[in-house]
Design a protein around this nucleic acid. Structure first.
Lengths: 348, 348
DNA sequence: TTATAATATGTTACCGGTAACAAAAATGTT
DNA sequence: AACATTTTTGTTACCGGTAACATATTATAA
């Protein structure tokens, strides 16, 4: 492998001079620079960024720890991260935790060992402990999508959607269409968005004077199985809901399966809405009423915040919180066509 | 930052001994090992894998260079790569080229600089040159999904789907349903799968004795716009096709848009089939007839091949080629319900 | 022309591990 | 007990860059 010393020898200069040329530092005469560049060219030299990272103690690499790259929400977010990282000459190492806090802890440890310059994390749990290995080492962290408890005074930024608000408007929309018994299925109680979405749901019900029925609130997992199981359970209880609020796209997918299996149709028998759009489906058949979050922007913003921390351009040390408003997209799955002239649907 | 020397001092041994303990090497007495472990524990020491990589000249990291993580095919493939890499204690750096050979070359250069142990690449073009920076440095490469020209005798493995066969059976399926004029839209001519899919298409036509009409074959881009534009063009020509074969999911999506805009319906006016499933959509509404490739397995296999090369377990130096058969999933978008009793549809 | 500053280049040591070899200690053998 | 072996531990140098400082060269001013 060709090193900086090989180049130096060939160009008849010192390694340091070559280093200067590579990094475009001033203080190299044009003639010397030309000689060095030629030597680099002839030898096909590529600087060893590993050695560089090692010497400089920074890797120009960030870790992206999410739960599942297979979820379009995270895919899009990841794309935002990658694009922004590339623009700033950072690479991205990516890790899927599958919502497993242990796997998460393992990955964070790994990233700490790799001395990544920073980490973007969608935490699998509200618990703080897995962050320790990073924070203790002074590695900046930006959370995305989800909160972690007890970080108020630490410099861990966060970029998230306003789940409370999103759930609130979605629930309100259902109520405006005449629904009174609305089931809600979200992820694990340990995930902040699960709590928040239930909170927004409760707020909307309260505002409408609809009494809360605990049996309609289900904490499951943000997965197809979770949605499937809880929907079956919800729809088989005596006083079954007329609408179901899926905590995310996967849950809605599972719910859809369950509804179909039970021989019900959407929205005639049960309305079904959810958080996150259902990508391809919605392009083909604009059917599902959803609340969408700006996933790509979340990735971009998180990366920008992180890089700013890394480069130390932020004098401000306190925690930053970016909360993005989600958007309600009204389509048909909540029975909008059936309920002509109701609420948001006047225009129909 | 705590180093191995700090631990050594605290434990009253040499750094080398600590290194041995960390790596679980034999030749350390139980008592010493205990002392060292305790020191590590007390100091909260985590080995600097950067330094480790540097000393050992291997990074335990692979690069994954694909065109777009947003495409579910690549997302799934990436997941296969990540899972397999993690299982073997490798990390994955990921890069999106957006089908741009220049961006690809840049990323490969970057990865070469980072001294990744190997690269998995879905090439943006058949041209070989961007691979040079890796091959010259002896960095193993495994191609996925697509071929690169002139690599016969080089040790660059490949894992791909059998595009010729896939296109062949899909076209044959259309023919069996009575279609004679079938339009096909694929990606750039520089991409091997584009050529292969057209090849399979031609074979099926030839076999059925249907003369080739060049105007029905469109090399565009593997994107929504490509599908949209070419579909509009295909459907507005005088003798318009009764079926369209989308080269991938995005193309089909664009085609769908175009068809809808032109006021046609699927499959009554035009049949529409494609390569790659349309994930969410198909779960909700099993409508699209497609040929699917085992994306996850492709990721797994590619990673396994790569790691085997990296670890040098392969005595065999010649190029390996893994070709996976795609699967035809017959649904309704080619007019199967309309054409009762025809071909594959006897069971209906 | 000489002093002084500015610019260009070189030297040394270090980043934090580990391989390769050397030395010391423990164990076994005759 | 004396020697050979094996096991445990330590020493040195190196991986390939770069910071910090030292020195040589050139330009600028007095």
């Amino acid at each position: 492998m060709i090193t900086i010393r090989d180049v130096a020898k060939k160009a008849g200069v010192s390694p340091m001079t070559v280093s200067r040329v590579i990094n475009g530092r001033r203080g190299v005469s044009p003639r010397t620079r030309a000689k060095v560049l030629q030597a680099i060219e002839e030898l096909g030299y590529v600087p060893n960024s590993l050695a560089q990272s090692f010497a400089l103690q920074r890797t120009k690499t960030i870790g992206l720890v999410i739960t599942d790259i297979t979820n379009p929400f995270f895919t899009t977010l990841a794309r935002g991260v990658e694009d922004t990282a590339a623009k700033n000459h950072f690479s991205v190492i990516f890790c899927n935790t599958d919502e497993d806090p242990e796997k998460e802890a393992l990955y964070l440890e790994l990233l700490a060992g790799k001395r990544v310059d920073g980490v973007i994390l969608a935490p699998a749990s509200k618990k703080r402990h897995s962050l320790k290995s990073l924070l203790a080492r002074g590695i900046p962290v930006v959370l995305v999508d989800r909160e972690v408890e007890g970080l108020r005074h630490m410099d861990v930024d966060i970029v998230k959607g306003d789940s409370v608000y999103g759930a609130y408007i979605l629930t309100k929309h259902l109520i405006s269409l005449g629904h009174r018994r609305i089931g809600i299925i979200v992820g694990n109680r340990d995930i902040s968005t699960a709590e928040d979405r239930v909170l927004g749901y409760c707020q909307a019900l309260e505002e409408a004077g609809i009494p809360l029925d605990e049996s309609l609130i289900r904490f499951a997992t943000y997965s197809e199985e979770g949605g499937y199981r809880e929907t079956k359970s919800l729809l088989s209880q005596s006083n079954r809901p007329t609408a179901i609020f899926g905590g995310n796209n996967f849950i809605a997918l599972g719910a859809m399966m369950a509804i179909r299996e039970l021989g019900f149709s959407i929205p005639e028998d049960v309305a079904l809405v959810c958080f996150e759009d259902i990508d391809f489906l919605s392009k083909f058949i604009p059917f599902f009423t959803v609340v969408v979050q700006p996933a790509y922007s979340m990735g971009v913003l998180a990366t920008e915040l992180l890089i700013r921390r890394i480069e130390g351009q932020d004098k401000v040390r306190e925690r930053r919180e970016v909360v993005l408003k989600p958007e309600l997209i009204v389509r048909e799955s909540a029975g909008e066509k059936l309920a002509k002239g109701v609420g948001v649907l006047e225009k129909n």
